[in-house]
């Protein structure tokens, strides 16, 4: 008997601090699998953002630079420009990327920086206790939208994958989910494509990964997982929104 499924080398063999049913863990693994496949762990520089995924360096066995909240794409730009021979990726949440860091992600994408951005959209600020995020659904209750997000006051959830796909500098932009095996397999493929863009120097690549946040949604993991499929995917459709090199 041989082992046909194991922890990817690029992922450290440690317990994560993520909550039960939190998809950060699954997305971490898919990113690590992509690194293993391209054999790039030794030349990769990760840029950690501020949020539940701030401990990127505890889980990925790669060099990591910690960026201030929202600034990972700028930090990654500096690192990649200084070391264009390295693989540079950022891993950010929705508060980090789509709120405070909107300017940085849009301009890094627009400059076509040869980096890969992994954006985890779980419609909330997880680490700080479940506040409303730019991707919070209309009507969704959070600790700062107690009676549900009201679009008249709080606007609408932002669709980042589509938004970045408008920019000429972007090579690849796709949205994925990990709420069922089929979507996980698809997400695995998309994430590998995103890294392939960088490995083959085809330009800026962006992955938006929908994720559940059971703790801050106040749901058990299975119900939260269902919510991704029932509520999030209809509003945040999965798919490839830009793929200039047709990888």
């Amino acid at each position: 008997m041989r082992q046909v499924f194991a922890r990817p080398e690029s992922l450290k063999d440690v317990q994560t601090h993520f909550c039960p049913g939190c998809n950060h863990g699954s997305i971490h693994r898919l990113v690590a699998e992509a690194m293993d496949e391209f054999g790039i762990r030794g030349e990769t520089i990760g840029v950690a953002s501020v949020g539940c995924s701030v401990f990127l360096y505890n889980y990925f066995d790669v060099d990591v630079i910690e960026a201030p909240h929202g600034r990972a794409p700028a930090v990654a730009t500096g690192a990649k420009r200084a070391r264009p021979d390295r693989i540079v990726f950022t891993y950010q949440g929705d508060g980090d990327l789509a709120a405070i860091g909107t300017s940085e992600i849009i301009h890094a994408a627009n400059r076509g920086e040869a980096i890969t951005v992994i954006f985890v959209n779980n419609t909330t600020y997880g680490m700080t206790g479940g506040q409303m995020a730019p991707t919070t659904m209309v009507g969704q209750k959070t600790s700062t939208s107690p009676s549900g997000r009201n679009q008249a006051k709080d606007g609408y959830p932002i669709r980042m994958a589509e938004l970045l796909a408008q920019l000429e500098g972007v090579g690849f932009s796709a949205r994925v989910a990990v709420n069922n095996p089929k979507n996980v397999i698809q997400a695995k493929r998309m994430i590998k494509t995103a890294f392939r863009y960088q490995v083959e120097n085809k330009g800026f690549s962006f992955i938006e990964a929908l994720a559940a946040c059971p703790t801050n949604w106040g749901m058990n993991p299975l119900a939260a997982n269902e919510r991704v499929g029932d509520e999030m995917i209809p509003y945040f459709p999965l798919g490839v929104y830009r793929n200039t090199a047709n990888l």
Binding site: L11, F18, G25, R29, V178, V184, I185
Partner: peptide, 8 residues
């Protein structure tokens, strides 16, 4: 099952 597990 392994693909779905967030904790490897």
């Amino acid at each position: 099952c392994a693909e779905m597990c967030p904790d490897v």
